[in-house]
Each structure stands twice: as C-alpha cells, then as structure tokens.
Amino acid sequence: MTVPLTAPKESILEAEQRVRRKDLSRRWRLFARGAALPILILAVWQTLSATGAISEQLFSSPWLILKQYAALTLSGELPHHLRISIVRASLGFLLGGSAGLIIGLLVGMYRRFEETVNPTVQMLRTVPLLAITPLFIMWFGFGELSKVLLISLGAFFPLYVNTFLGVRNVDAKLFDVARVLEFSRFRQMTKLVLPAALPNILLGIRLSLSIAWLCLVVAELLGADTGVGYMIQDARAFMQTDIVFVGITIFALVGKLSDSIVRYLENRLLRWQDSYKG
C-alpha cells in the first residue's frame, strides 16, 4: 500500500477552515463566559426596580439609565461635557506624562541626576494628591489651569517611576555592544535605551492614564461648571440617580477604551518579546 506524502490540497483547505471555525467559536465562548456575570447583575437589577423591590429614585434601573443616555446624547449635553473632560484629561496626561518620561529617562541614564532629583520626587510621591488639591485651587483658582495641573501631577509619577525602572533594567551587556558599534548618544537613546525600556514605559502610560482619569473626577467634583464630573455633581444635587450612573459608566467606558488602546500598542510594539503568554 502506498501512503501519499502530502495531503491533497482540498483537505488542507478544509482543515484550515475547520481550525478557523473552531477558533471563532472558542472566542465566542470566551466572550460569553466573561459577559455572563454582568448580564446577570443587570437582569436582577432591572427586575428588582421594575417590581418596586428597590427604589427607582435612589437606585435607578438599567432601562432608565439607557433612556437617560439617549436623552442626554440627543440634547448634546453629554457630548459637550465629555469633550471638555477628555480635553482636560489629555492635556494633563500629556503634560505630566511627558515630564515623567523625560525626567525618568534622565534619572535612569545619569547617576548624578538621579542623586539630585530622585529623593525629592520620591518624597513628593508619598503626599496624597487630595491633600494638595486645596493648594492648587488657592493658587490657580477654579479655572482650567488648576484642573490640568492637578491631572498632570497625578500622571507624572507612574510614568516617572516606570521609565526609571525600565532604563535600569536595560541589559548592561548591550551597552558594550553600543560602544563597540560606536552608537552616537542620540542613537544610543533611540536604538537601545528607549526600545529596551519600552515594556516598562507602556506600563507607566497605562497607570498614568488611569490616574489622569481619577484626578479628572476629583478636579471636576470639587469645582467646575462643565465636564462629566460636574454633570454627576449637578445630578446628585437634584437626586437624578440615572444621570449619575450615566456619568459613572461613561468614565468607565472611556477609561477602558484608553486602556485598550495602550494594550493594543503593547501587542504591536512588543512583538519581539519572548515572555510567558499564560
């Protein structure tokens, strides 16, 4: 009996399709498993408030929140507040994040810089942000400046700490290679230090982004006349629980979205890594 060394073409194609179908159904099952708990909670919540077991005024209900979403979007109120919040958070993140990145790189690269700057930064890092907020309001008023600065201060530390750590984790043997190949100072930074520290820098960006959101809420709850935080504060005053929930969920959504973008970047930029994928 002769055995064919290669399988016929059709069966290979079929096999590929089978594998792809299997992959797809596996992904669906994964999604279903992750979504089961939230759906259950929403269903129970809706039933309880529909039957009057809990107060609709105080706890709202998924359906009311959804209706409020539609109303606020159509009136243009939600997009308006959201846009302002996003601008504040991005400005603060860019300002504080880039400062954290640059100072983190310098501190990581130069010992003398570390000895001069790091102790002060580490000391400031331990001060709770909320304790500094009154100072910021006294100095910079209730305007945009104090909000952006508060957010940037929060976004500074995670990027600073992780960039510093990333630079210190660069394999010293690769610096020898850079010496032998006569890398310029600029190339040493762009071809060696930055890529080697990138895993830590990206982690720093993720943490900085989430802190930026946190500080945004703090800034907007304390004193503002626009923004999602203000919207929540305003709705609380009038016991509009559904609007409060709209604000909370929109924070969660945008926060998750920005985190997903960085995770996507991580997957693209760190393809070279050879680490345990779980």
Binding site: K173, V177, K191, P195, A196, Q273, D274
Partner: peptide, 8 residues
C-alpha cells in the same frame, strides 16, 4: 553570547 538587540 550573540548580544543581538531583541527588539530588532
């Protein structure tokens, strides 16, 4: 050791 840059 080869000492290649792992990201390249």
């Amino acid at each position: 050791e080869h000492r290649l840059f792992p990201w390249m």
